[in-house]
Design a binder for these strands. Structure first.
Length: 767
DNA sequence: ATTGGAATCGTTTTT
DNA sequence: CGATTCCAAT
């Protein structure tokens, strides 16, 4: 996979960039002006094509690198793309091009043009826990019972609306029934709270940027001029707001290159609209369409299995996938007794591959549908002494102690941020209880002053005890000192977000590391966790230490980058805002390191875009994959689950294991489970079925064959038949219904109640 | 005001 | 089952 061609063959720069490419890849790389859609099957060298194309635009065509904008899905993907482009060009040129995620690009644009939207440049980006707090506040203010209107589903509905660019006002106009009218009220309140707190949530980043471009044609013109060549990766996962953004940026020059694969669209639940990619040619009738169908990643068997699966989807553009790679081993479908045996079996399998086939730990990965499934696998790996890493980039920042420390930093950077202020005002406890907080909030409302303002003047708050007044005054003084140290106090005009006005760092300004350190000590967070007896290993303290070092690392990187860009004196405020933005926008995959020499564990969603020689998918069972909750959305939901399964399978290069169990314990409850219906859709000649569960009864049936005997099965158990089930005991068939290749029977058991079973798998006997 | 224990709840995927 | 919330005792 070397990007550098042999020195003797091609002579010109263009030739070098096109070396080793297939005709369709070459077509995609050399297309310059006008819209283009690259439909890239899994493992078809898409990343290679994208990076070469960026290099080609710069070197081959002579386009300035800063005129190129490439948008990826994760920070990690952006980093890798920058890396690979810099190998083809120079580091300087690679940095000149804008390579970012939608969210980080928007965050940056909103800071730059904050004044046009009346947005404070120091705005906070709210993550989901901040959102929840804000939502609870909204429900509280409106005196709505969260029992009837759960905060999470409110947020979900509002998020969907924002993705469709529907603001609170527009939502209210379409809200017909009682539920939606209530949501409309909540939406409005929630928006007010965020505005008052100078905060944006994830969806706002997109929404506000689209509004910026709509309302300020001069900004749009500026950006269009700057970004003359726009490239968007993973286009199948864009939502309406992102679609509008892409269209706006490309609206003049039409130089929009979208790459992606409809068969890998797995974010429909988050508002992604698969039609964006399916209807690209309707939006851009003169679009060039390139299909990359040759797979360089997987063996023939693995590709055949995955292709056989995805052919069962109806809403798709068919691609004729093929590969010149070896046949390889069949995909192994293994049935285990329970999740512990499953994990244990996997560990032994991995050990065997490591010892006998000399495979590195880093070449193996385990995928699962839900994060909670990782625990058992993790335990087994730990017991076996195998190195492993879990792709949970957000896990570190999810820890309570880290969240607290970050909340302090947010409050320093953004005085208006009451959600975070109230989070930390009594953490660790310093004698400002619930009553006091309520009193201050009430006073804030009554006097129309910000809470940040109130805490400087605690005497004026009615009903605040003397003790509390002192505690609040002390707290306010502490925050003030930090702000002064950070150079944030003297220049209130900075809050209005005038770019370019921020002065160069003064010499006496402390470093970011120092600020973080001071906050952790002076807030007494450190002391609190040092005394914490529920944490004898002082893990929490160690995490706070890690936050300090990560801030230091971040600061060094930031200074280096700024120096390269000719800005040698970023202020502490700049550094702080950048750090907070980064913390808000980390994703799970960002933390995986394939060279780490460890088995990698991650969700199927996080696996997109990666590849591993050895892949094991665990919990491939009905109810898990496809997930129970997807069934409510009918066919559409099931097709997305099938794509998710497809994504997982196509990550595998050489070997693929898909395991299921007979019993699985979820949320503390052990339930009998059956293999995923998707396994029946895999072509028989690409798979090998194996049952290692204790009682050894093959759940696929002796003559496992897809699409068989559904009708016979139905005839065998007419409603009313009395049956016996190995777990549920004696029962009576209520209804029998065919669905796809299965026959489902509802059975009323004497002891276990009514269950829905699949006849092919449930070992029912007539009584 | 703070603390710990009991009760309750909600369970997918994530920028 | 684990996390969060609630409540009663300090």
């Amino acid at each position: 996979m070397s990007e550098l061609p042999p020195a003797n063959s091609p002579t010109t720069v263009e030739d070098a960039l096109l070396d080793g490419l297939t005709p369709p890849q070459r077509e995609a790389v050399t297309h310059v002006d006008g819209p283009m859609l690259v439909l890239a099957g899994p493992g078809s060298g898409k990343t290679r094509v994208i990076t070469r194309r960026v290099a080609y635009l710069v070197r081959g065509v002579g386009i300035a690198p800063w005129n190129v904008l490439a948008i990826t899905f994760t920070n990690k993907a952006a980093g890798e793309m920058r890396e690979r482009v810099s190998e083809l060009l120079s580091e300087r040129e690679a940095r000149a091009a804008t390579i970012a995620t939608f969210h980080s690009l928007c965050a940056r644009l909103l800071r730059r043009y904050a004044d046009r939207l009346g947005l404070p440049a120091g705005y906070s980006i709210y993550d989901s826990s901040d959102q929840q707090r804000a939502m609870k506040q909204a429900l509280n203010d409106l005196e709505i019972n969260p029992k009837n209107f759960p905060p999470n589903s409110m947020l979900h509905t509002i998020s969907n609306a924002k993705n469709e660019l529907v603001d609170a006002e527009a939502f209210a106009q379409t809200a017909g029934d009682f539920y939606n009218r209530t949501v409309a009220k909540v939406y409005k309140k929630y928006t007010q709270i965020l505005t008052r707190n100078h905060a944006l949530d994830f969806d706002d980043l997109l929404l506000k940027t689209v509004q910026l471009l709509k309302q300020h044609p001069e900004v749009l013109a500026e950006l269009r001029e700057r970004y003359q060549y726009v490239l968007i990766d993973e286009y199948q996962d864009t939502n309406h707001a992102q679609f509008m953004l892409a269209n706006a940026l490309a609206s003049g020059h039409q130089n929009l290159c979208a790459t992606g694969d409809p068969d890998q669209s797995i974010y429909g639940w988050r508002g992604a609209n698969i039609r964006n990619i399916l209807e690209f040619e309707q939006h851009y009738p003169n679009a060039k369409v390139v299909r990359l169908e040759q797979n360089y990643r997987s063996t023939k068997k693995i590709l055949a299995a995955a292709d056989g699966l995805i052919r069962n989807n109806s809403a798709r553009k068919h691609k004729q996938l093929f590969t010149d790679n070896d046949d390889g081993d069949p995909v192994q479908l293994v049935t285990m007794q329970d999740e512990r045996q499953e994990a244990h079996w996997l560990v032994e399998r991995f050990r065997d591959l490591h010892v006998n086939e000399k495979l590195a730990w880093g070449e193996m990965a385990v995928f699962y549908r839900m994060n909670s499934l990782s625990r058992v696998v993790e335990d087994a790996l730990r017991d076996a002494g195998m190195p492993y890493q879990i792709a949970r980039g957000t896990a570190f920042y999810d820890r309570a102690e880290i969240k607290d420390a970050v909340a302090y930093l947010r409050v320093i950077a953004n005085p208006a941020d009451e959600v975070n202020l109230l989070r930390i005002i009594n953490t660790p406890t310093r004698g400002i209880g619930n009553q006091s907080i309520k009193a201050m909030q009430a006073h804030s409302l009554a006097s129309n002053r910000a809470v940040d303002d109130i805490i400087r003047d605690p005497m004026s708050v009615p009903g605040l005890s003397n003790r509390a007044q002192n505690a609040v005054a002390k707290f306010a003084k502490m925050v003030d000192e930090w702000r002064t140290a950070a150079g944030l106090n003297e220049a209130p005009d900075l809050l209005l977000g005038q770019q370019g006005l921020s002065p160069a760092a003064s010499d006496d300004e402390i470093s970011l590391r120092e600020l973080v350190e001071r906050v952790i000590t002076e807030s007494t967070l450190e002391e609190h966790y040092r005394k914490d007896k529920s944490d004898p290993d002082q893990e929490r303290l160690a995490n706070l230490g890690e936050l300090i070092s990560s801030a230091q690392q971040f600061e060094e990187d930031y200074l280096n980058e700024a120096a390269e860009d000719g800005n040698d004196a970023p202020t502490l405020r700049d550094k702080l805002l950048a750090l907070l933005e980064r913390i808000s926008l980390v994703s799970d995959v960002d933390s995986v390191d394939q060279g780490e020499g460890a088995v990698t564990l991650m969700t199927l969603h996080a696996a997109k875009g990666l590849e591993f020689p050895i892949v094991a998918m665990v919990g491939v069972e009905d109810g898990l994959l496809p997930h129970q909750r997807s069934q409510n959305e009918g066919e559409k939901g099931e097709e997305e689950e099938r794509r998710l399964c497809f994504v997982g399978m196509t990550r595998a290069m050489r070997r693929l294991y898909m395991t299921s169990t007979r019993y699985r314990t979820i949320f503390g409850q052990t339930m009998p489970v059956i293999p995923s219906r998707f396994l029946n859709e895999l072509p028989t000649d690409a798979i090998e079925v194996c049952d290692v569960s204790e009682d050894g009864d093959d759940p696929f049936g002796d003559d496992f064959e897809p699409h068989t005997s559904a009708r016979e099965q139905a005839g065998e158990f007419p409603p009313g038949t009395r049956v016996r089930h190995p777990q549920f005991g004696i029962g009576r068939i209520i209804t029998v219904a065919r669905s796809g290749s299965h026959t489902r029977a509802r059975v009323e058991f004497n002891a276990a109640g009514v269950k829905t079973l699949i006849l092919q798998y449930a070992r029912l006997e007539k009584v």
